[in-house]
Amino acid sequence: MGLKRTDEFREDAVRIALTSGLTQKQVADDLGVGVSTLNKWITAYRDTDVVPKEDLGLAQENGRLRRENRILKEERDILKKATVFFASQKP
């Protein structure tokens, strides 16, 4: 029989999932719940005030910026490797 989670636990899990910048899998693993369970809680609490709209907007913007930063780092790493490769080529 599964452990009964309190409303407060579920609300905290949703708040963390929506604002932490972690993936839902990371949050679910950290909290010891299944991803599908976490998704159900997010759906149930999405339209409540568990996460103030302003905080949710900031979290979404942070997520967008993290993704953009990751892409820029990957592009930079590719350019560094290409520079090393071409510098090692003899004319």
Rank of each mutant, 00 (worst) to 15 (best):
19 T>D: 07
3 L>F: 12
37 T>A: 06
82 A>I: 13
25 K>D: 12
66 R>F: 01
4 K>G: 05
78 I>D: 15
73 K>I: 15
74 E>A: 15
45 Y>S: 14
66 R>V: 04
36 S>H: 01
79 L>G: 08
22 L>E: 02
1 M>T: 11
52 P>N: 09
53 K>H: 08
51 V>I: 03
15 R>N: 03
29 D>I: 13
40 K>E: 03
26 Q>I: 01
43 T>E: 06
33 V>N: 06
84 V>P: 01
11 E>C: 05
88 S>Y: 14
43 T>C: 01
89 Q>N: 06
80 K>R: 11
22 L>D: 00
22 L>V: 02
35 V>A: 14
43 T>L: 02
24 Q>L: 08
62 N>P: 03
74 E>D: 11
74 E>T: 13
15 R>A: 03
1 M>P: 07
87 A>D: 13
73 K>M: 11
70 R>T: 14
51 V>A: 02
80 K>D: 12
38 L>G: 00
2 G>F: 02
33 V>F: 12
52 P>D: 13
39 N>P: 10
41 W>K: 00
80 K>Q: 15
87 A>H: 14
46 R>M: 14
59 A>T: 10
74 E>R: 09
91 P>E: 07
23 T>L: 08
25 K>P: 02
37 T>C: 01
78 I>P: 10
5 R>Q: 09
77 D>A: 10
38 L>N: 00
84 V>L: 06
40 K>V: 09
48 T>L: 04
52 P>Q: 02
5 R>F: 13
19 T>R: 00
32 G>F: 04
25 K>T: 08
24 Q>F: 12
4 K>N: 08
81 K>M: 13
17 A>E: 03
14 V>N: 03
75 E>V: 06
82 A>E: 12
21 G>L: 10
76 R>C: 15
3 L>R: 15
65 L>E: 15
1 M>F: 11
62 N>E: 02
56 L>V: 11
34 G>M: 08
56 L>C: 07
51 V>T: 05
76 R>V: 08
51 V>D: 03
16 I>M: 06
55 D>H: 10
12 D>S: 15
74 E>M: 15
31 L>M: 07
54 E>A: 11
91 P>M: 08
39 N>Y: 10
11 E>A: 13
39 N>A: 12
91 P>A: 14
36 S>D: 11
52 P>R: 10
28 A>C: 05
60 Q>L: 06
23 T>Q: 05
11 E>Y: 01
4 K>P: 06
73 K>S: 14
41 W>V: 00
69 N>C: 08
90 K>H: 14
33 V>C: 04
4 K>C: 03
18 L>V: 09
84 V>S: 07
30 D>K: 13
53 K>W: 01
79 L>R: 06
8 E>N: 07
33 V>L: 02
20 S>G: 11
28 A>Y: 00
39 N>G: 09
21 G>T: 08
15 R>Q: 03
26 Q>H: 00
52 P>W: 07
77 D>G: 12
42 I>C: 05
90 K>L: 11
17 A>D: 11
83 T>A: 10
79 L>E: 08
3 L>M: 15
28 A>Q: 04
9 F>N: 02
91 P>D: 11
74 E>H: 15
55 D>S: 10
82 A>R: 09
8 E>P: 08
63 G>I: 04
33 V>S: 04
70 R>L: 05
40 K>Q: 04
54 E>M: 06
